[in-house]
Computed example of a mutant assay.
Amino acid sequence: MSSTELAREALPQRIKRKVKRALGPWGVFLEGFIRHPVMVGSIVPSSRFTIRKMLAPVDWENCKLFVEYGPGVGTFCQPVLDRLPRDGALIVIDTNPDFIDYLRHQFTDSRFTAVLGSAADVEDIVRSHGHEKADYVLSGLPFSTLPDGVGPAIAAATYRVIRKGGAFLVYQFTPRARHFMARHFLRIDHKMEMINVPPCFMYWGWKDED
């Protein structure tokens, strides 16, 4: 292949990199949605209203480990870190290596860890980072479009990994997530946030103390 042909072949990649840099996190998020629409679920990150309302019930003073599934480009990460105690930890789990690579460069807080993996393996991931249980788990994964068996596996593993008194926080664009949660969480609070694209359903599944 001649140098001219190599240059022509490399041009689309150079343009792509320039566009991504210009768009910043939106460019990374958009590419992630295009590549993995089933796993990302939405083309637009959550609104600040959704973030504020979703995190409001968390008892931050007693939160030592917060876990997030499908963090994307970190829309929730900084708000969680802003609220987390100095001795707390945030572990985010995503199957998209582009998102994980972006997050590892974006967040330098020592309390932050980005893991390339499946939410179904949350128990092993939590233990491998020196924890027994999580206080809260947040998920924006699109349960209604996950491959067969994956949603139930994630819901079951999440229930097991959450400490008593903790909660599973879920935001979705359809109400189907409640079906997966209700198999394990007897008490589920719910609200809806209209100032979001699209409007989303919000659920808090509490692991009540015996």
Rank of each mutant, 00 (worst) to 15 (best):
S42H: 10
Y159H: 12
M194L: 14
R178M: 14
I100P: 10
I51A: 09
R178D: 15
C200M: 12
V122P: 03
A153M: 00
Q78E: 14
K64L: 14
A10G: 11
F107V: 12
K64N: 13
A167D: 09
Y171G: 01
A153E: 00
V58M: 04
V40S: 00
R83H: 12
A7G: 15
P85C: 07
K18I: 13
P147D: 07
Y136D: 01
D124G: 13
A155G: 05
I93F: 10
P175I: 00
I15E: 11
D135S: 02
G151I: 00
P45H: 02
T75Q: 07
Q78T: 13
F185H: 08
H190I: 05
R21E: 15
K16I: 06
V150R: 01
C77S: 06
L11R: 06
M202Y: 08
I34C: 12
G88M: 00
N62S: 09
S46E: 08
I100D: 05
F49M: 15
D98T: 06
V28D: 07
G149I: 02
F66R: 03
D98E: 07
S2T: 10
M181H: 05
K191N: 14
G151L: 01
V44R: 08
D121C: 10
R178T: 08
N96P: 04
V126W: 05
D87Y: 02
V122F: 04
K20R: 10
E61Q: 12
D124W: 11
G149C: 02
G165C: 03
H131E: 13
E5S: 13
M194I: 12
Y69L: 07
G130A: 09
K164S: 15
V137C: 07
D82A: 07
V44T: 10
R178S: 14
S47N: 08
P147E: 06
T145D: 13
D135M: 01
L55N: 10
G70H: 09
P142Y: 06
P12F: 09
R176S: 14
Q106V: 12
P45E: 10
K20M: 06
I188G: 02
A182M: 08
M202E: 08
R104A: 03
A167R: 10
P147F: 03
Q78A: 12
H131L: 14
N96A: 05
D208W: 15
